[in-house]
């Protein structure tokens, strides 16, 4: 099912949380929804679920407009909020049963579905436990199982990995992967950009309530990678290399760390090869020469206005050594 948001605006009093946000999530896509804190991700997700009404704009599923509180349309969506939304005074099975009855499922149908889902998320052995007694990771799995109880076509997950330990994160990721394989359309917001980049097929980057970039993840990565700096590892002749690079028009900016030079290069791949050849011909000992690969994190930082700072930081921390 295709989810579309068109010109969504949301005001909280005088504060504009969403400013004409538009996005499109295709059927079966796993859409990574990223943005800095306060960018409007959660508000947008609440509007997608019909929990919140936009000030203006519309949300539609397969062309049909979704209105807040619309029962039929709302049932097409499963929602996992950033908080667990757990009733601590219920047992795991009762919790699932409660939400099953909220969706009008009762009796054997509900029981089968609950058992199936608890098995799916690995909580079937804990069905008699009070929710309160579950770990954070288990609560998150339960929350996901709850969102799936009515077999929604679209699943919206707001920061599903936040606060989970690495093992729980891995388990949760594999569950999402399985759901994606089953063809569920999913929208996931997360700060764990590495997790998102491994899972997502599409991405939307939101800042100050507006979409700054969206599209297929591979396409977005390509665009950003071509704009990333080139890292030249110099073995000998560092000062000569700096002089030589400064004279070139295509080198827009340069920074140096130890024996490595980072250049913002405006040329294409052929120009890159030419540059490398010329540097070698000038007798400069080049240890490595590569354009820094685009990561979701770098895309995010560039588009939300902290690009250079982050790139240099990442470089200084030696995180990109393997790419050099």
């Amino acid at each position: 099912m295709m989810l579309r948001l068109e010109g969504i605006t949301k005001f909280y009093g005088q504060f504009c949380a969403l400013n004409g946000l538009s996005m499109e999530v295709e059927d079966g896509a796993l859409y990574g929804f990223v943005g800095p804190n306060g960018a409007g991700k959660s508000t947008a997700m609440r509007i997608m679920c019909g929990i919140l009404a936009p000030t203006s704009g519309k949300v539609s599923i397969d062309g049909k407009e979704l209105r807040s509180g619309d029962q039929k349309q709302g049932r097409l969506i499963g929602y996992v909020p950033d908080s667990f939304g757990i009733y601590n005074d219920l047992k795991v099975y009762e919790y699932m049963d409660f939400f099953a009855s909220c969706y009008g499922m009762t009796g054997l149908t509900a029981r089968k579905r609950i058992e199936e889902l608890l098995e799916f998320v690995g909580l079937s052995e804990r069905s008699d436990f009070f929710v309160e007694a579950l770990s954070r990771g288990m609560k998150q799995k339960l929350s996901l199982a709850r969102a799936l109880i009515h077999d929604p076509s679209i699943l919206i997950l707001d920061e599903p990995n936040s606060g989970l330990d690495p093992r729980s994160r891995y388990e949760f990721k594999s569950i999402l992967s399985r759901l994606s394989d089953e063809g569920k359309t999913m929208v996931i917001s997360s700060h764990m950009l590495n997790d998102i980049s491994e899972l997502c097929t599409d991405i939307g980057i939101i800042d100050h309530g507006s979409m700054v970039m969206s599209g297929r993840l591979s396409e977005v990565m390509k665009i950003v990678t071509s704009e990333n700096p080139i890292v030249i590892g110099v073995e000998t002749g560092l000062s000569r290399a700096i002089r030589s690079l400064k004279e070139r028009e295509m080198v827009r900016s340069m920074s140096i760390k130890g024996n490595d030079i980072l250049i913002n290069f405006g040329g294409d791949r052929r120009a890159e090869a030419e540059l490398l050849r010329e540097l070698i011909e000038e007798g400069i000992g080049i240890r490595s020469f590569s354009r820094q690969k685009g990561s979701l994190e770098s895309i995010f930082m560039q588009l939300t206005g902290h690009g250079e700072e982050k790139l240099v930081n990442a470089y200084e921390n030696g995180r990109d050594e393997d790419q050099l």
Binding site: C49, G69, Q71, K72, G74, P81, G85, I86, C102
Partner: peptide, 15 residues
Amino acid sequence: QSKTLELLMATGMSD
């Protein structure tokens, strides 16, 4: 307060 109200609303249950 326990953030369960929005879950109830998301179920499509009427107010």
